[in-house]
Design a protein around this nucleic acid. Structure first.
Length: 991
DNA sequence: TTGTGGTGT
């Protein structure tokens, strides 16, 4: 062991005895202190001095890879040993540790991953969790894990380091509220920072609308932005007046950085260097921040400069107090990335960035009161994230349930339920929230569960080769660079990777391009230039390839087959869809700004920077949906709705409407509608309804097909029953009552009784009937008596004849019962040539079955003083009928005259024709005449015979003559029933 | 018409 020394100028060095003592006496201690205290580098050395690191490693975690490797290098350097020998680091894709090492720097993600293979973390005798106050998902998970582990590893020592303000929280977490674990506070070596509050001067112009439901009008948004830029410029001015020194300005995003850069450039002399700084900047652009020059530098940064990067030499800070914060919305299941006010802890961290080399000044662009009202801490990531991945990992580690896991701040039941729901959606857990075999496979993949699901689907779809490339691309940052100053050039360069239907395919094209670039490279330098010329980040390309090769290793270990034949669009995209079912969209309008309707009623738009923004089709899926100024879909591709049906079958909710009988397929169909998370995938699809609702389908089959008659069958019962019903219906019209035929329900009941329950369609019915009718041929035959109500028995052909003979010509009679209709009553079909032969007098008698009612009404129309001699009127009418029949006098003479004579005979009363009020009788008591031509076509119809004869009389006569001349000489006059001389004679007689 | 920063089986 080399000699261990401690740099005396670090605050932590002076407290090392105290720390060592606390660690000897306690299993867990908290060390709090601000940046510059030296805790990160010195703590492992204090542990070493205590003899730790011998039985097991001193594990030391950092939130970021860079920090892990640089800390390892520094400690190794301070111990005077080569990196990797006694002090090494392990991050993803890089492990420098040799066997006999004592100190292992690593990312917290690595330690978390190791719990999978080493659940008791036996490799370690001491663990330092650094920067615990950052409260990333990994850190919160580790803190819970360690809390559970401690009783089972009494020999394990744990040090948590944190910023001063939240040390207590950790102390209570590892101890109890009453007896927290010791906190050792080490001062930071920070200079004094003076904080000035310079709230933004709001423009005096009033904001026009106060409706909270309306979006902020553009003009107002623009004014607010200008106000912010004015505030930045004024603050920078104020700081520059204080003296020399570089300025760091915290802004929420790239856009604000660009605007501020523009405002400052207009305002400041050219020798001031204005440097943007955010994570997506190319390495070269970021490097400018670390090169110092003589000019004053104004660095415009996102919160990358709050924790991840330390900009050297900063004397002044301007804090807009804003940041974009990622939050997962459980309601819509989308991520939000909106600008929020930062917490006090973040504001203080920002201010601290100017106290590292000398006293500093920080200007906050908001009120002190505003600061004091802000929350103390940024919400930990676990309260802002989808928990699906966390739950999956916990399940595969066989940890206690999420519900009871000792999180520092446990997620809400609602968030947990949401996480389970997503896992169910991808099939990782079953209905009881237990891990499925598929879930176990997913847990083995170092990917978001949804991306992991795509890989498993790709295995089944024979597109794993392509999917590995796409899936790894989706889990790293986009390799495409789009520098602020060269956006158009970048877009132009990226065009060659574009595809008209899918942005996922762009990843494959970039991949191929890079493979070829590597293959044909002349030097590393040339490759780098090539990447730069194509606006691709070599760093991110490398990361992508690293993830890809890691996945490839797992795939080979599992023995999963890589396809050699190139996958089709459908193969790849249905596999992608398996993981993206929550991110589908349907364009429900043609106007340009319409956007897409998505799951759960959300509405989103394609990211404006997308190549497909104007050409994506009706149905799309998106790799991600993030709500910024609007809900935007990034990385989209066209899909077919049929794929959703196939891939999302387990999520489709189907409903059925309008069940109805269809004659041609001889089955009951219904309109099926399918929705996925409320989004209609299809509707109005006619499907066979029988299997879904056999009872209802059978009812409809009986009602509409068998009883309604909408059915094609050769089964004899059917024609028989139909005819029977039709006959009876004809009777109904004759008797002018609709209750002759029994109700349809009774006929339905008849079929219902005889047909087995499982008959739901034509095919099933025919099969059954064929068998069943063999033994019982009259099965399903309806019987006339059963179909008729007894009261209707009086309807006979004598009473309601089918035809009437007029001068030897048979004219058809039809009956219709429909009050108000022109056809109501009885209609006589009169051939044109015989029109003049029809006698109005005879027509007054109608048919025997209708006369009694007519007579009754005629009597009723008489004045009271006359009709009282005939009461009761119905009886008189009935007896009148009897007398007519007895005399065989039906149809003979004028009806009214005959009736007048009868009354006189029976009562001695003198009634005149004018006493009858004919106009009070309903229309159906007068014969309806239908004039037809020789082809049976109707020429006219009406009850006024005289009017018809006046109109058609001439034509009728001409046709009558023609027939008489044409037939008489050839001796064919007897054809039909026509006898011309007799007809002529009768006509004369009638006139 | 435009997205903060990290991490890994």
């Amino acid at each position: 062991m080399p000699e261990i020394t401690f740099p005396e100028d670090l605050p932590v060095s002076g407290r090392r005895e105290e720390i060592a003592k606390a660690l000897t006496e306690n299993q867990v201690i908290i060390v709090s202190g601000e940046t510059g205290s030296g805790k990160t580098t010195q703590l492992p050395k204090i542990c070493l001095q205590l003899g730790r690191g011998e039985k097991g490693l001193i594990g030391h975690t950092q939130p970021r890879r860079i920090a892990a490797s640089s800390t390892a290098k520094r400690i190794a350097h301070e111990l005077g040993t080569p990196l990797g020998e006694h002090v090494g680091y392990k991050v993803r894709f890089n492990d420098t540790l040799s066997k006999g090492a004592w100190v292992k720097l690593m990312t917290d993600g690595i330690l978390l991953a190791e719990t999978q293979t080493d659940p008791l973390l036996k490799a370690y005798d001491t663990i330092v969790i650094d920067e615990a106050h950052e409260r990333s998902l990994n850190i919160d998970f580790l803190l819970g894990y360690l809390k559970q582990l401690l009783p089972r590893r009494p020999d394990l020592k744990v040090i948590i380091t944190s910023a001063t303000i939240d040390a207590d929280r950790f102390a209570r977490h590892f101890g109890t509220n009453e007896k927290p674990v010791p906190v050792i506070e080490v001062s930071g070596r920070l200079y004094k920072v003076e904080v000035r509050y310079r709230p933004i001067e709001r423009d005096a112009v009033a904001i026009p609308t106060a409706d909270p439901n309306k979006p902020v009008p553009k003009a107002v948004a623009a004014r607010e932005k200008r106000d912010l830029m004015d505030g930045v410029v004024d603050a920078v001015d104020e700081l520059c007046r204080i003296g020399s020194g570089d300025v760091l300005v915290f802004l929420p995003g790239e856009r604000e950085i660009r605007d501020a850069a523009e405002s400052l450039r207009k305002h400041h002399p050219p020798h001031v260097e204005i440097l943007p700084l955010f994570a997506r900047l190319s390495v070269e652009e970021q490097d400018r921040v670390f090169r110092t020059t003589n000019a004053r530098r104004i660095v415009l940064a996102t919160n990358v400069a709050e924790t991840s990067l330390t900009v050297p030499g900063i004397r002044y800070v301007v804090d807009a107090g804003l940041a974009r914060v990622k939050r997962y919305s459980y309601r819509n299941k989308v991520e939000q990335l909106q600008i929020e006010a930062v917490a006090q802890s973040a504001a203080n961290q920002r201010a601290g960035r100017c106290g590292r080399v000398a006293d500093g000044v920080c200007i906050r662009l908001y009120e002190e009161d505003d600061f004091n009202k802000r929350p103390k801490f940024t919400d930990p990531e676990i309260l802002r994230s989808s928990l699906a991945a966390v739950i999956l990992r916990m399940k595969s580690l066989h940890l206690t349930d999420v519900e009871s896991f000792p999180f520092i701040e446990p997620p809400t039941p609602r968030a947990i339920a949401d996480g389970y729901q997503l896992l169910q959606e991808v099939g990782a857990v079953d209905d009881n929230n237990e891990l499925t075999p598929l879930g176990r496979k997913l847990a083995r993949l170092p990917l978001d569960p949804r991306v992991g699901r795509m890989i498993l689907a790709a295995l089944d779809n024979a597109c794993l080769t392509e999917m590995l490339i796409v899936a790894s691309a989706l889990s790293v940052q986009d390799p495409r660079d789009r520098p602020m100053e060269h956006q158009q050039a970048a877009d132009e360069a990226h065009k060659k990777f574009a595809d008209d239907k899918s942005e996922f395919l762009s990843f494959l094209k970039i991949w191929t391009w890079f493979e070829q670039a590597i293959e044909h490279k002349k030097s590393n330098r040339q490759l780098m230039d090539n990447c730069r010329a194509n606006f691709l980040s070599q760093l991110r390309l490398r990361e992508w390839r690293d993830v890809h090769s890691q996945l490839l290793t797992i795939v080979r270990e599992q023995g999963w087959r890589l396809n050699e034949a190139p996958a089709t669009y459908e193969q790849l995209h249905t596999a992608l869809l398996t993981g993206l079912l929550g991110n589908i969209g349907f364009k429900d309008g043609e106007e340009p700004g319409a956007g897409y309707l998505g799951a759960r009623g959300i509405r989103f738009h394609i990211w404006p920077g997308s190549y497909l923004v104007k050409k994506a089709g009706k149905w799309i899926m998106a790799a991600e949906l993030v709500e910024t100024t609007r809900l935007y879909a990034r990385c989209v591709a066209q899909i077919q709705p049929e794929w959703i049906e196939k891939v999302g079958a387990h999520l489709l909710k189907k409903s059925y409407g309008e069940p109805r009988w269809e004659k041609r397929p001889a089955q009951v169909t219904a309109a099926e509608k399918a929705t996925l998370h409320g989004l209609i995938i299809y509707s109005q699809r006619r499907i066979h309804y029988g299997p879904l609702n056999p009872r209802e389908a059978r009812e409809i089959f009986i009602r509409d097909a068998l009883v309604g008659g909408d059915y094609d069958t050769r089964a004899p019962f059917f024609a028989h029953n139909r005819k029977l019903v039709k006959d009876i219906e004809t009777l109904e019209h004759k008797s002018r009552r609709l209750d002759v035929l029994v109700d349809d329900q009774l006929i339905e009941a008849f079929y219902d009784q005889h047909i087995p329950q499982d008959i739901i369609n034509g095919a099933g019915f025919e099969k059954w009937y064929k068998e069943a009718s063999r033994d019982n041929p009259k099965l399903l035959y309806l019987v006339r008596e059963e179909l008729m109500r007894h009261e209707a028995a009086g309807v006979t052909t004598d009473m309601f004849p089918k035809a009437m003979s007029v001068t030897g010509i048979e004219m058809q009679l039809t009956y219709h019962f429909e009050p108000g209709s022109v056809r109501d009553g009885v209609t006589l079909a009169v051939p044109l040539f015989a029109l003049n032969q029809v006698s109005a007098e005879r027509a007054e008698w109608l048919v025997p079955g209708m006369l009694k009612e007519k007579v009754h009404l005629l009597l009723k129309s008489l004045p009271q003083k006359l009709r009282r001699h005939m009461v009761p009127l119905p009886d008189y009418a009935g007896k009148f009928m009897d007398r007519i029949h007895a005399k065989m006098a039906f149809g003979r003479g004028n009806l009214i005259d005959v009736l007048i004579a009868d009354i006189r005979e029976q009562t001695g009363i003198h009634v005149l024709t004018a006493d009858f009020k004919m106009e009070t009788l309903p229309a159906h008591h007068f014969m309806n005449f239908k004039v037809i031509d020789e082809h049976g076509r109707q020429l006219d119809m009406g009850r006024n015979l005289a009017a018809l004869q006046a109109e058609f009389g001439r034509q009728a006569r001409a046709q009558f003559q023609k027939m008489a001349e044409g037939t008489a000489p050839t001796g064919e006059g007897a054809s039909g029933a026509l006898s011309v001389p007799a007809a002529v004679a009768l006509q004369a007689g009638a006139a």
